[in-house]
């Protein structure tokens, strides 16, 4: 398995292949399609991330010190964003997630390119991931 840093660099590199934001969105949509389906039973109020225009569910399972994520969203681009986070953070240790500052997202330009309301959604996703690692 790649290290956290390697996984982050890989995402940054893949996103930077596209100059145009529409292409980046297509990439995110494709990424979202690779997410393992989240069972209906995991779409609970507890797993729901608040602060997004679309609905996003993030389920976590811990095996010892390792944390695994599954996610889904009713919107495709948002699903792509959460898929990107799941790809990077699922299977990491609690310490790794706790110590990470998520700054690789800044290099992708996701935050600047989402309006404040949607960036709020991204921040809510980050906060949810962090909260699971507490």
């Amino acid at each position: 398995m790649k290290t956290l840093k390697e996984a982050q660099e890989e995402v940054v590199e893949e996103m930077s292949m596209f100059d145009d934001w529409l292409d980046k969105y297509s990439y995110l949509i494709d990424l979202g399609a690779t997410l393992e389906t989240l069972p209906e039973s995991a779409r609970t109020e507890d797993n729901l991330i608040k602060g997004c225009q679309s609905r996003v569910w993030l389920e976590c399972n811990k095996e010892g010190n390792i944390i695994y994520f599954k996610a889904d969203s009713d919107a495709l681009i948002t699903k792509g964003i959460i898929a990107l986070l799941v790809r990077v953070y699922s299977g990491r240790t609690l310490e790794e997630i706790r110590d990470d500052d998520f700054s690789f997202l800044d290099s992708i330009g996701l935050k600047e390119n989402l309006s404040p309301t949607r960036a709020g959604g991204l921040n809510a996703m980050i906060a949810k991931i962090k909260s699971y690692a507490l």
Binding site: W21, L22, Y25, Q53, S54, D74, A75, L76, I77, T78, S115, R118
Partner: peptide
């Protein structure tokens, strides 16, 4: 089948400002 947020995000990048939600 499509979410209004997805459509609004893509339209935005095409320069079209519409309301969604």
């Amino acid at each position: 089948q499509l979410h209004h947020e997805d459509l609004a995000l893509i339209l935005d990048k095409m320069g079209v400002a519409v309301r969604s939600g």
